[in-house]
Design a protein around this nucleic acid. Structure first.
Lengths: 138, 138
DNA sequence: CCAAAAAGGTTGCGAACGCAACCAATATTC
DNA sequence: GAATATTGGTTGCGTTCGCAACCTTTTTGG
């Protein structure tokens, strides 16, 4: 019965499973299951980051970034400030609501990561992250 | 610069990157980048499989299976036959076009898998698959 | 048996995402 | 310094997917 799924299949299965769980955890806070939590976390940890830097860091399409940022702004977690140096760009800052939420967000993400890796030792977790990074670099 | 992405983030990045590449490879054959290739492969290798068995094997929602199967039927790769034993169910069989396509599909999938794992040794690939399975089982 | 529950399948709906086209602002080139 | 190319960002569109509601058929419990 041991399914011999190739890497790509596992990635697909785990991605969808992960999205489902995360959306459950984050729904009470108005954050969709998508990458929104990742965008928010990045803004909270790097106040004043440029929108297009988010796109690069998180490796989403810039359209996706635009919509995630718009959503976070509507929910009141962040605000957008036009960059004086480059008037095409926006700088992203947490609001007070965002700042207040940071500890909760970090805890939720930590708990979620612990949940999905609870069958792995510390060494295995680091090994897995390293292997995934290698795959990404192909 | 070495980003310390957690497992979940890597899964997300790799999933989207993978979908993109696969959809490019499979577009000429009328197969969307989604799970469609996986459904087709399963039907080709297990002629007469029940639709709901596909759902279980591939771990998609049954609605997604319904749509993938419908698409494969419209493209002429498979056909659906009502199960005489259980008139709610459908049995899925490859068409001649599907059978003819099997070698190509297997080759394409093999090439794709080789591409995404080209930075990994055989041992690392097996190790990675094992770790991903462990994560799945949480 | 008959009513109620469960199972296989489909469809409507909404969320997340990438691509392409577009706009405004900045860089580049001659 | 004007024409052109590039860049940051937004919007429209199409695809993929899960959930919930529903229909039909089968199974289960009294």
């Amino acid at each position: 019965m041991s399914e011999q799924h190739p890497i790509g299949r596992w990635i697909s299965i785990l991605y969808r499973q992960n999205q489902k769980q995360l959306s459950q955890v984050l729904k009470p806070y108005g954050l969709g299951g998508g990458g929104q939590h990742a965008f928010l976390k990045n803004v909270l940890l790097h106040p004043g980051i440029r929108q297009d830097q988010l796109t690069l860091d998180l490796k989403f399409d810039k359209a996706t970034t635009a919509r995630a940022v718009q959503h976070l702004e509507q929910e009141g977690y962040i605000e957008r400030v036009a960059d004086e140096q480059d008037r095409r760009a926006y700088l992203l800052y947490p609001t007070q609501k965002g700042l207040d939420f940071l500890p909760t967000l970090l805890r939720l993400m930590e708990e979620h990561n612990a949940a999905i890796t609870r069958n792995l030792s510390m060494e295995e977790e680091a090994l897995l992250a390293g292997l995934l990074k290698k795959v990404y670099e192909s």
